[in-house]
Each structure stands twice: as structure tokens, then as C-alpha cells.
Design a protein around this nucleic acid. Structure first.
Lengths: 120, 120
DNA sequence: GGACCTCTTCGATATTTGTCAAGGAGGTGG
DNA sequence: CCACCTCCTTGACAAATATCGAAGAGGTCC
């Protein structure tokens, strides 16, 4: 079972990475780290959850709002939120009876950055 | 089994999408389409394959070069390349005895675009 | 045509992932 | 303290995925 990633680990770009044996190819370790972040986003339910947070003014929403919106059971939504949390893509905070999840836009953008291929 | 995506389908941004029931939240259909593209990239082997193509001048490489580099069997690499191909992220072309796969940078960038959150 | 090379498909298997029902943990409010 | 509310964890299971060996399809070269 993979350990949580830091909120904003320095991810090497998919190209223009530090040269290794294969002359510029991304290292296996970096590929694994990047894949974990991408995998966290690569699910319709999780995309909808992130989207739902983003349309809110503060980019956050509580589980009680999120669960009905994606039409999945509460445990399942909790599971998906944990995936996002472990990947550092959202934070969570308890306020009163509710837990609010908030998108970390920098983390999402960091993934986008890697895929921008601006070096090519 | 999901059908191949067009090379460059118009993917709605993760936010600022056309409003629907839930006031701006991405639609389920769009979420599924985006998830398919992300899933195609969300694997260490496939990231390495794409990376390896990108470091080549013309962003292409043949299977015979790719397979040894990721240390997986040939059928497995073929499987991964098919995933990328079905997602429209690479093209393939036979030249002589070899099949050359080439990254479609616009397709990768289109995914990046969605994650850029420039509207937030 | 026939041996050969590269790549893909097929069949099988182990792992991972998505999902839910049931129950537990943590906090609120009478 | 006790009923209640929200959320999370556990356990179980079905589906999807990653992987490989073996066999097939498509092309090359003598």
C-alpha cells in the first residue's frame, strides 16, 4: 500500500528530466510518483468530486454535499476522497459536525504542468 | 470495453463547464471521457513509454526500442501502447519491419489544459 | 516459397480497484 | 450521559487491469 505523497512534491517534468541511463527518459521512480497522482484523478467519480469543489467559491465542500451529488454510497465517496487526500490533491478540515474537503489548486496545476510539454 | 476516443475530442474544462443541474459541475459523461484519457496516462510503464518517445527528435519510437527500456515483456508493452493509442495519445505507423509509435503532443496538452484551472 | 523478424492477439492468472452493507469513531446537543 | 449526526473503517465481492507465455498475423529477405 502506497504512502501518502507530500502536498507538493517536486515532480520532474515528463521530458527534460535529469539525464539518466536512457538519455533524458523519466526515471522509474518519477514515473511511479507521477502515475500515482494521475491515477488519483483518473476516475469519473473523483473528477466530479473535484469539479464540485471547484465550482464552490472557496473550492471546498463537505462530504454530506458531495455524496448525494455523485450518486454513490457514503463509504464509497469517503474512499474516493481519501484517494484524493493521499495524493495531496485536496485537504480536509473538520468544522463542527462536517468535514470540508478543499482542492489544492497548486497540486492539480503541478500535474498539469508536467503534461504541458512546454519543453518540446 | 470502452470505444476508442477521437484523437482530439473537445473536452470540456473541469470547471467553467456549461451549467447543468448542479450549477457548473462537470457532467457525468465528460467526467467519464476525461477519466479515460487520464487513466491512459496513469501508469508508470505508459508514462515511461511516452517519455521515451518524447526525448526522441520526432517524438516517436518503435516497439523494439520501447520494450527493452521499460523492462516488460513485448506483449505487455504492446498492451500499454494500445491503451495509449485507443486514448488518442499516440499514433502508430508501420515502416518496414517496425511499427513506430508517435506522441500526439496536442492530445497530451489537451489533458493538461483541463487540469490547468486557469478559470479559478 | 520458406526461413525469419517484429509486433499483436489469445488465454490464463494475480493484483488492483470500485462498490456497498455493516459497524465504529468522533463530535453535538438535549 | 445518552441519543443523534456525520463521517470513516472494515470486510466482502465483482470488475477491471497488468502481466506473461504461447501462438498467430503481417512483412522482409534470401
Amino acid at each position: 500500500m502506497p504512502k501518502p505523497l507530500p502536498i507538493l512534491e517536486d515532480t520532474s517534468p515528463i521530458c527534460c528530466a535529469p539525464l539518466d541511463d536512457a538519455a533524458g527518459m523519466i526515471s522509474h521512480g518519477d514515473a511511479v510518483a507521477l502515475a500515482r497522482r494521475l491515477k488519483a484523478l483518473a476516475d469519473p467519480a473523483r473528477i466530479q468530486l473535484v469539479s464540485m469543489m471547484l465550482v464552490r467559491p472557496s473550492h471546498e465542500a463537505c462530504t454530506c454535499d458531495l455524496a448525494p451529488a455523485v450518486k454513490l454510497s457514503e463509504p464509497t465517496v469517503s474512499h474516493h476522497l481519501k484517494q484524493l487526500y493521499d495524493a495531496g490533491l485536496v485537504t480536509k478540515e473538520r468544522r463542527g459536525m462536517n468535514v470540508y474537503y478543499r482542492v489544492v489548486p497548486e497540486a492539480v496545476k503541478a500535474v498539469a504542468e508536467v503534461l504541458t510539454l512546454d519543453c518540446c
